[in-house]
Design a protein around this nucleic acid. Structure first.
Lengths: 337, 337
DNA sequence: CCCAGTTAGTAAACCGGTTTACAGAGCCAA
DNA sequence: TTGGCTCTGTAAACCGGTTTACTAACTGGG
């Protein structure tokens, strides 16, 4: 392939001139620039990115670290980040860690090793401090959607607490009094916030948080399925269920079907996320919608600011919306309060 | 950050020695290598990837081009390719093109510009020849799952025809005679193969392919939904349906629900892909399973061979499997043959 | 004792750009 | 005519590795 040297030779100028011309760092007389353009066209010259990167120390690429690209929520988010990055001339590396700490740290190492200029990080495994320590050593990192305690980098989250509160209020407004909670891992930021919102709504309505209605510990749909089956078999089963994610809701739906409980007739269900998946189920899920596009956009923009050495907002909170579909009804009269 | 020069200085050797030692191109006495190791540890030295890449001309990264990362089939495939790439020390760039020809060509340009060492390409928009021409100019390209006519690079496909045939035979064996076909874009490789398999099964059973039962033209679930609603309203509706992809099947399920047709009681359904999505629906979809792991693995391995300048298999065909779930039953007696 | 072969390295070129520091030519004003 | 300024560039250093081609020192055999 032709190099900048060949072009310079053909145009009768130095390679400095060609380089500066291509990067708009010099004004040239029309005759000179025409000669350069012609030489470029003749040799079909394209700058070697590898060389440029070594010179500038920039890669024009960022990394996006997610726990599992196969989960629709993360895939949607990746798509949103990619769109915004594209708009700014950046390409993205997507790293699907399978929640493996080693792979998360490997991503951070790629940042250190100039694989990428910045990193948008999303992890849903509780940190023992090692990840936070590693992040502390790097610059140009942004946390998205999920917090890591003790990390001082820009963070972009949604209104988890408010969303869960509104979901629960929606069920209460329909007349439900026994509302179960299906949550993610204990100690995980979004998990805790969503639980707090659920509890707040109950409290505000004068209802108590009952241990028998709480099922927390994991985002796995299979565990959710089991939990729901057990719940349905209880002496006083709940009439409604708030699931902290669409993936959990899917497990719950399977469990309810197995237990012969009809949604929404015998059990109302509100979920959190609102991925396209939820709309495709039968019945379509009423859910708290996360603004995925906005999450991706704000996440990238915060990182972009960091990379430009400009101030980035320390904490962004994006609002959520209740989307009503078909999975909520009033409880059937059963002689219960 | 420390450079190889600093390490060489500290260890009292030349940077050539350090470089060769690190790349296992030299045997050193224990004393020398210990000094180098100590110098590396002391300076916390990490080779600058950008510099190495410029020197070697390799990036140890490959690109994966898919139409839409949000569709579960592609997300699963991306995950499989990433796993295999990881095993060989490669990282991957995922590019979600939204079926935009410009973005597909941009990916090919990234290959030319040394962004990546190779490219695994998957496109589901019929080509007017421009993409094929562009691919012809590059080396280290592999086609996965979907063909582009006129391209002479290694290709890895599944047994589309055989899969569709078996799906259709499965319905015929259950007693169905009026079996509709829901297909993707005309002229698209997988689309045509799956249609051929469907038609072959009917022919072999002495049944005809009836125009009124064919709905082809797109992989969009929304169009599938409309088509199915229209179909259900026909004078002599089919009793079974073969959908060429899970995404189409989801649209079909929505349409059937809207039309008040119960699956599988009033309509049996077999799909193609078998993404986790299909197993989560109600009823769970009986489907032809694509071997996604194997697709990813063979796709990467073919590319790996190319990159090593070794011969790569020109065409790999992977077998598919019928997975029986809940969406197929025998047709109800209705006085029809 | 001398030569060949091995051991343990090294100097310098190279990858292909970007950037800094500088300079000749031409022109204008004093 | 001379000093200064603008225009149009350039030479050379630099980014940080890898690789080629070469050599000094040592060892062992004849």
């Amino acid at each position: 392939m032709a190099t900048i040297h060949d072009v310079a030779l053909a145009a009768g100028v130095s390679k400095t001139t060609v380089s500066r011309y291509l990067n708009n760092r010099i004004e040239l007389p029309a005759a000179t620039s025409a000669r350069i353009d012609a030489a470029i066209a003749k040799h079909d010259y394209r700058p070697n990115l590898l060389a440029r990167r070594l010179s500038t120390g920039k890669t024009d690429a960022i990394g996006l670290v997610v726990p599992e690209i196969r989960e629709p929520f993360f895939a949607e988010l990746a798509s949103a980040v990619e769109d915004e990055a594209d708009r700014h001339g950046y390409t993205i590396f997507i790293s699907s860690t399978r929640s493996d700490r080693g792979r998360e740290i490997a991503s951070l190492n790629r940042l250190r090793d100039h694989h990428v200029d910045g990193l948008i990080m999303l992890t849903n495994t509780p940190d023992d401090g090692s990840l936070a320590a590693e992040i502390g050593k790097r610059r140009n990192v942004v946390l998205l959607d999920e917090d890591i305690p003790g990390v001082k980098v820009p963070r972009v989250f949604v209104e988890n607490t408010e969303g869960a509160r509104r979901a629960t209020q929606h069920l209460i407004a329909r007349g439900h009094r026994a509302i179960a909670f299906l949550g993610g891992p204990l100690g995980l930021f979004t998990s805790e916030e969503r639980f707090a919102g659920y509890a707040a709504a109950l409290r505000e309505a004068g209802l108590g948080v009952e241990g028998q209605h709480l099922h927390r510990g994991s985002f796995s749909p299979d565990l959710a399925e089991q939990a729901v089956v057990a719940m349905a078999a209880a002496r006083t089963p709940p009439t409604a269920l708030f699931a902290s994610s669409d993936y959990l809701a899917i497990g719950a739906m399977r469990g309810l079907r197995r237990a012969g409980v009809a949604v929404p007739r015998d059990m109302s269900l509100v979920s959190f996320d609102d991925t396209p998946l939820g709309a495709m189920l039968t019945p379509a899920l009423t859910a708290i919608q996360q603004p995925i596009e906005a999450l991706g956009r704000h996440g990238f923009q915060a990182l972009y600011a960091l990379m430009q050495r400009k101030p980035a907002p320390k904490l962004t909170r994006l609002p959520v919306t209740l989307i009503e579909r078909e999975s909520v009804a009033s409880p059937r009269a059963r002689g219960r309060l």
